[in-house]
Design a protein around this nucleic acid. Sequence first.
DNA 1: GTCTATAAGGGGATAGAC
DNA 2: GTCTATCCCCTTATAGAC
Lengths: 198, 198
Amino acid sequence: MTDSQNSEARRPGKRERLVSSAADLMHRRGVSATSLADVAHRADVPPGNVYYYFKTKDELVRAVLAAQTLQVTAMTEELGALPGPVERLKALTSRWDEMRDVVARYGCPFGSLASELDRRDDGLDRDAAGPMRRLLDWAAGQFRELGCEDPDDLATALLAGIQGGALLAATLREPHLMTAQVGRLHAWIDTVGTPAQR
Amino acid sequence: MTDSQNSEARRPGKRERLVSSAADLMHRRGVSATSLADVAHRADVPPGNVYYYFKTKDELVRAVLAAQTLQVTAMTEELGALPGPVERLKALTSRWDEMRDVVARYGCPFGSLASELDRRDDGLDRDAAGPMRRLLDWAAGQFRELGCEDPDDLATALLAGIQGGALLAATLREPHLMTAQVGRLHAWIDTVGTPAQR
DNA sequence: GTCTATAAGGGGATAGAC
DNA sequence: GTCTATCCCCTTATAGAC
């Protein structure tokens, strides 16, 4: 937030605009299919000027990952207002159902970005895990609060279910697959969250 | 198989070599990060010569998808030798556990390729679903044989579990996540496959 | 039928003008 | 501090030599 409110009714700073444009384009087209010229154009910033804000394209990608991590944090903080872990975990998965049309077209923003960056070996592949790790940690905390034996394992199972559902929905272009998968996960959360079953 | 055995002890034809090189490189680096020069070099074929076999890069990608579909078919046919659907479904998932080190580094070959191609709108995004669809159809057939009510739904749940597990394993670079996920899926298959539970 | 040379275009990145 | 002009490399694709 270097210069976010430098004028009364002005839109966000250029840096912010570049990051959100990059996030959007990289989600819809992928990182390597997104050129810096595209990002600049969409952010309404002169083409070569991107390098004033980001030394390299990779640095811009890192900024997108940082923004995603913040987004995850904001989401989980909202969820914290709900009464119990079961409600919170169900509400988390429901977010992907709400995004089902976008997910079925471009995949989960976190999953597809991570999936593309994973295969690198320039350091970006490590940063790519950030948003997912935060989701896992939060979910594990909820399962722990429920008194489950292996909260980390359960968090992995939950996120795998979400990400797998998103991937299939996108591949088959069927939003309802995401809905169905979220429904199954809700039922599963109930099973895990009911002391009788543990 | 245009000219696969044109000489006694000779390696596979150039076209085959190009396809398998492309499949390997596109799995490890992604489609857009793989240049035709790379593919040609790895296949030991002169650079510009790729265009004799494939009119465009997209056509080469299509050939890779076709090869993956054949690979899935070969896999499911092998699995057909097993006594029952439960064994066959467990053996299917175990394949990803066996590949866990590759999966944790480069993702599932089918899932990551599909994930990258999904976001296009040039027709390749439709072809991308081929291998996954064949896996789903086969799994649904197994659940149907078990007498399950919603075989297609169960197949989706199974593949989502596999793909989600692969994505997380790759993102976190932890092969054991794939193993753990396959273990959970085995237990789930038992649940679904036991008449008492239905 | 096989391969080389090269065209044509786009990409990331830089130097320096304003 | 902001932006323009441009460099250079890499990539796909083609034309035509062997």
